[in-house]
């Protein structure tokens, strides 16, 4: 558990001051992180890709599964680009790809690997160790799965509106890593 927070924010991202960021976190460009979102890098650094949307009360927690106690190499949680973490979702997966949507109040357990284009429906609890295939859609109370045709459409309109509205109402952390 690192006691120092190292947060690197790329150019164009809007990170609210009220969000809880702990540990070694790298946030890509054009991301939007709402207030009261929590990104906790307990077991190792988290690298978030570009154009991700992390809404209020979303929790991205990188912790080791309890059966693997401290090893030498610190695993890195790499989150791809164009992901959406909706309100109050809890994501503890060990690897996340691109273009995924984690709907409100879903819970993704520790041992899952999410690939690209997946949609985890609202309220679904996934705890079984598995790798979700590309474009998997999980929905319903009993976490039924189906395969979508292709990845979900990125929500550019919403991101644009937010990037204009959020600075008017919240204090922001300044990006500290310039694009090279």
């Amino acid at each position: 558990m690192t006691s120092r927070n190292t947060i690197k924010i790329h150019h164009g991202s809007i990170v609210c001051e009220e969000s809880k960021l702990r540990g070694d976190i790298t946030i890509g460009s054009n991301c939007i992180i709402h207030p009261s979102a929590a990104i906790i890098a307990e077991a190792g650094p988290i690298i978030i890709g570009d154009c991700c949307l992390i809404e209020e009360q979303a929790k991205i927690i990188h912790r080791l599964p309890f059966d693997q106690s401290d090893k030498e190499n610190t695993p890195v949680l790499i989150i791809g680009s164009h992901n959406v973490f909706e309100v109050d979702c809890t994501v503890e997966a060990c690897k996340i790809g691109d273009n995924n949507i984690f709907e409100s109040k879903c819970y993704v357990g520790n041992k899952l690997t999410i690939t690209n284009g997946c949609i985890i429906g609202a309220g679904c609890r996934l705890t079984e160790e598995q790798t979700l295939k590309d474009n998997t859609i999980v929905y319903g109370r009993s976490c039924q799965m189906r395969e979508g045709l292709d990845r979900p459409v990125p929500q550019t309109l919403q991101m644009d509106t937010l990037s204009k509205m959020l600075p008017n109402y919240h204090h922001l952390r300044k990006p500290n890593k310039k694009n090279q």
Partner: peptide
Amino acid sequence: YPLEGSRT
């Protein structure tokens, strides 16, 4: 066969 997201 996945059963309710918690076991297979």
